[in-house]
Design a protein around this nucleic acid. Structure first.
Length: 487
RNA sequence: GGGUCGUUAACUCAGUCGGUAGAGUAUCGGCCUUUUAAGCCGAGAGUCGCAGGUUCGAAUCCUGCACGACCCA
């Protein structure tokens, strides 16, 4: 079939038709025509002297002997066009018959309404703008095959309006967040994606190699340590929205590269972040969906502030159904995790085991927004310790729909404590924990100059887009998700 | 890493008990000036994911592999 189209194209070319001219210029988006004239009656449309010049992809053709209806689609929408032999002349009308669904054409026409009251362009002239050599998927069912939709996102975008909508929404969300932070005096910055020491998160990094420098480099797992260096440098409110890379499994929640927002503000603590987070999410929902009660995969989730707050240990008791004896005793806690079907490695500390209990027993139940605060210090190597209890940190995570949506804390700015925390991580790494943090001497040096007290937060943008577009998989909200090669 | 399911025409899908590979859309030809999943008549289109095995005979049964989806870890 593709071969047939190639033959046809060659034939057309022999007849002197340019299949890929770059001379046609559209003058208006289809949506604008519809907005301006969609409500007018035929008699009113007849008075519109203007003709309209649009371009778009042919999505459907309904051809009669001497007249043809078709739909063309541009970035803004679809409109019906009507082509008549008596209007176009024999040659042009015969040329029309050579066009295929999928071809891009330019059209000049006047508006009218059909018997079924559809706004339609009566074509005065048209030309081929781009020849399509591959047939589009079926008009009624569209492209359903998930693998094909991800591999050939361009086709998915042509034929599935819901896919286009998701990515428009994604862009709106990013715009809104930038505006939200800019209005509050934050400055957007860019920090290294390629790092000599990958820091700022507990994760396995991708490794790469710089030939000229003869040096191993890592793709960043987080921008955190660089953003905090900027606080040392004197910028008091900074944020970055960009890609992180983690060399881990792929699932409906994880893509190896994903988009993260991190923002840091000096002279603030984690209490300030509860409020900002509530404000950001609830105003974002209002902007995007027009409501704070959103539908997600069959759940109604109410983002109206204030949200639930529970300390980490409280949540293990109240939601996880555990007692202090269960989670404060290493042997007992480890036994519970094993019973629930997950492994505990020999180097994993009590804090880590408690986190596993949380992941298994609490996280999936946090459908409505919940802030969980005061995480164990062992699993929070960059967070400031609580003033009253140094075994926990002034840190929270936000959970919605059973998923971690944000991670926030008062920042640890004592270089002496930070060095100790890194040293603990080094020990864990030596024992085989590939996710443990690296020592970063330059970061310590920066803290030694003095970082103002600060609070910082990371928000996973892909998961946020999933939430607001009711998408079940992260691959639905990433334009080109990572897949293995086809063959 | 483990389990379940899927892979048949460009697309959406049938394919019974192992016995000639099917439909709709799309494409090509014909008819048709108000259709909109247009309609009617006709035609072409396939490495049945790949590689083995069982069998007189495999899209179908068996084994392995690849890719994907979902669930578990």
């Amino acid at each position: 079939m593709i071969a047939k189209r190639y033959e046809k194209a060659e034939l057309m070319e022999k007849q002197g038709i340019n299949l890929y001219p770059n001379t046609f210029r559209k003058q208006i988006d289809i949506k604008e025509i519809k907005e301006r004239y969609g409500e007018l009656r035929n008699e009113e449309l007849e008075k519109v002297e203007e003709s309209f010049v649009v371009a778009g992809r042919i999505m459907a053709i309904r051809s009669f002997g001497k007249a043809t209806f078709a739909h063309i689609q541009d970035q803004s929408g679809k409109i019906q066009i009507f082509l008549q032999q008596k209007e176009l002349g024999n040659d042009k009308y015969n040329f029309l018959k050579k066009l295929d669904i999928g071809d891009i054409i330019g059209v000049k026409g006047r508006l009218f309404k059909t018997k079924t009251n559809e706004l339609t362009l009566n074509v005065l002239d048209f030309e081929l703008v781009t020849k399509s050599l591959r047939p589009l998927p079926e008009k009624f069912h569209g492209l359903k095959d998930v693998e094909a939709r991800y591999r050939q996102r361009y086709v998915d975008l042509i034929v599935n309006p819901s896919t286009r909508e998701i990515f428009r929404t994604r862009t709106k969300i990013l715009k809104f967040i930038r505006k939200f932070l800019d209005e509050r005096g934050f400055m957007e910055v860019e920090t290294p994606m390629m790092q000599v020491i990958p820091g700022g998160a507990t994760a396995r990094p991708f490794e790469t190699y710089h030939n000229a420098l003869g040096m191993k480099l890592y793709l960043r797992i987080a921008p955190e340590l660089y953003l905090k260096r900027l606080l040392v440098g004197g910028f008091e409110k900074v944020y970055e929205i960009n890609r992180n890379f983690r060399n881990e499994g792929i699932s409906t929640q994880h893509n190896p590269e994903f988009t993260m927002l991190e923002f840091y503000m000096a002279y603030a603590d984690y209490n300030d972040l509860f409020k900002i987070t509530e404000e950001m999410f609830s105003s974002l929902a209002l902007e995007i969906l027009g409501t704070q009660k959103i539908q997600y995969q069959g759940y109604e989730i109410d983002l109206t502030p204030p949200w639930n707050k529970l300390s980490f240990y409280e949540s293990l008791e109240k939601i996880g159904g555990l007692s202090k004896k269960d989670y404060m005793d290493y042997t007992r806690a480890k036994q519970l995790v094993t019973q629930l079907g997950e492994n505990v490695k020999h180097y994993e500390t009590l804090g880590k085991v408690q986190t596993k209990l949380f992941d298994l027993l609490v996280e999936p139940k946090l459908i409505q927004p919940h802030f969980i605060y005061h995480y164990p210090t062992e699993v929070s190597p960059l967070s400031r310790r609580n003033e009253k209890d140094p075994t926990i940190t002034d840190r929270f995570e936000l959970f919605i729909a059973g998923r971690e949506m944000a991670n926030a804390f008062s920042e640890l700015n004592d270089p002496r404590d930070q060095r100790k925390r890194f040293e603990e991580q080094i020990k864990e790494k030596a024992q085989g924990d590939e996710e443990a943090h690296f020592m970063d001497e330059d970061y310590i040096r920066a803290l030694e100059y003095g970082m103002p007290p600060a609070a910082g937060e990371g928000i996973g943008i892909d998961r946020l887009v999933m939430l607001l577009t009711d998408s079940p998989s992260i691959r639905e909200v990433i334009l080109f998700p990572l897949l293995k090669p086809e063959k």
